[in-house]
């Protein structure tokens, strides 16, 4: 059993091995956000981390991205410890975090550009991902000129353009209106099916979780850890009103800790 567990960790793309995270807030003392987390992410799976607001989901993502270091335990990416951010782990931010002084093209080609890819090559690459997210014709627009949904498409193209091993999406559609949100969920599914990547998607929206995921991990309130795990085998594209969809939705929702 122990051996088996060890092997599984080595084979996973991302592995949390007893990871904990505490913050020292001046004047407020220690604050434990993640406790003893075990988690394996397989290649090309669409994993959704689902949990109540402020439960530490984003902290888990920030640790994978390398923005924050674990306080304890081991966090491995392809068997090596994560040390700082890098292009093999691409993040799509909740507030888009687009560079407002760059055009759509400028944003998408930023990654290859700072890594020294030649102009011709990176333009071709960026154009491919701009087309993929459906933004052809907007290459020279500035982000402020785009709608929220379009801005997040740029964010997705920008992360994709570094050809990461894993895409980290931190409630990327949280600020969008309901209609745009449905549309973007469809789009993300389509993009993911065209260009398979490992995706870790954080959300507090149960419908979104069931619609997108191969696997859902329900997270506990702070200090967080995995409370329940669901494999979602419904065929894509999924239907929000399908009886099986609704049943899963009810079942998972019942597990979530709704207390504040």
């Amino acid at each position: 059993m122990r051996m088996d567990n060890k092997r599984k960790i080595n084979e996973s793309l991302i592995a949390f091995h007893g990871v904990s995270k505490t913050f020292d807030k001046p004047g407020e003392g220690r604050y434990e956000v993640v406790r003893d987390l075990y988690l394996n992410v397989q290649e090309n799976e669409f994993l959704v981390l689902f949990g109540p607001g402020q439960c530490g989901k984003s902290t888990i993502l920030n640790m994978i991205a390398g923005f924050e270091a674990p306080s304890g335990g081991e966090l491995l990416c392809q068997g090596r410890p994560v040390e700082g951010p890098g292009p093999e782990r691409g993040m799509v931010f909740q507030n888009t975090a687009l560079f407002p002084w760059l055009t759509v093209m400028g944003n998408v080609e930023y990654g290859p550009k700072v890594r020294g890819v030649k102009k011709e090559e990176r333009r071709k690459q960026a154009q491919h991902y701009i087309d993929l997210v459906g933004l052809q014709g907007f290459e020279n627009s500035y982000p402020v000129k785009l709608s929220g949904g379009m801005q997040q498409r740029v964010g997705i193209a920008r992360a994709y353009c570094s050809e990461p091993l894993v895409m980290l999406l931190d409630e990327p559609f949280g600020h969008l209106d309901a209609q745009t949100r449905y549309l973007m969920q469809d789009e993300l599914t389509r993009i993911w099916q065209v260009e398979k990547r490992t995706v870790i998607f954080v959300t507090n929206n149960i419908e979104e979780a069931v619609y997108l995921a191969d696997r859902i991990l329900v997270l506990r309130n702070c200090p967080t850890g995995v409370k329940a795990e669901y494999q979602i085998t419904l065929p894509r594209p999924r239907n929000y009103t399908d009886p099986e969809f609704l049943r899963l939705r009810r079942e998972i929702d019942a597990v979530v800790d709704h207390t504040l």
Binding site: A65, G66, F67, G84, P85, G86, P87, R89, G90, M91, F93, N95, A97, L98, F99, Y110, G111, V114, R115, R158, S162
Partner: peptide, 11 residues
């Protein structure tokens, strides 16, 4: 966050 985004992209 922009600094994070840039570092994530390899700056």
């Amino acid at each position: 966050t922009l600094v994070r985004a840039a570092r994530m992209l390899g700056a």
